[in-house]
Design a protein around this nucleic acid. Structure first.
Lengths: 127, 127
DNA sequence: AGTTCTGTTATACTAATAATAGAGCAGTTA
DNA sequence: TAACTGCTCTATTATTAGTATAACAGAACT
């Protein structure tokens, strides 16, 4: 588990943690069926409070990315093959639209944005 | 000014406001040189506190999208033609990467994501 | 000139969130 | 059995979001 937290960031710790877990899954370094460390173990590892890790795991569960088995552990769900939920799709659009609008206003043209997205996607897929 | 605030949203009011101004600019409904309403006027219009609007304007100024002329008003900067700042580009990447990773993990393939981005971009440019 | 409007600043308060801390419960696992 | 697990409860601290009111000084307008 290669996770690094920046305590001084303006991004909440539990969000940083959830994002990095998602990236690890996208990269294939974590796969469906793999288990995440226990909240206590990871908290100790990152020098962070147990409840912060717990909140992060529940956020991942709420997004449908892991499932938490009480008294046992957190397991990563296999990547869905039959497309994305319409709910999740709506959430993605709501998140990405303001960023795309900002990119346009800051002087990027649509082609440049497409290239940037493509570059990030391939960079995520590879190691 | 067609701006609508959802007070119950989990997105802060000043962020909602800044995002909608950015979208208006991206759509061309607001152009470089146009002035934004005074903080008091817009606050009264949206039934929101003056300081909330003020914070929103300063966020837009910090992003380089408007400039605030003290004792006068807030003016929209012309869209930069000679590309985006490397700083702004880095900020965009940091914001968009976790969303793209989440899209992948939730079952979208890269082509589908590209199409979605393209669709949002054209939808922003029109009307 | 004088009034109004402007962004700005300061202070104060409430509510919600982020993060930490410690204790305990009950089921799982070795 | 003993250690570990997620979970819950309570508590505290710090920060943020939003509202509220007041005052200042420059700009704009009549």
């Amino acid at each position: 588990m290669f996770i690094q937290i920046e305590p001084t960031s303006d991004i909440p710790i539990y969000t940083q943690l959830a994002n990095q877990v998602i990236e690890l899954i996208a990269r294939g370094q974590l796969q469906g069926g793999d288990t995440l460390p226990s909240v206590r173990a990871l908290a100790s590892d990152l020098s962070v409070n147990m409840h912060t890790v717990n909140k992060s795991y529940h956020e991942l569960e709420h997004k449908g990315i892991i499932r938490i088995v009480p008294k046992s552990g957190a397991v990563i769900n296999p990547i869905v093959q039959d497309g994305i939920t319409s709910d999740n799709r709506r959430r993605i659009i709501e998140q990405i639209k303001p960023i795309l609008a900002e990119s346009l206003v800051l002087g990027m043209d649509p082609e440049e944005i497409q290239k940037l997205v493509s570059s990030i996607l391939t960079h995520l897929k590879e190691e």
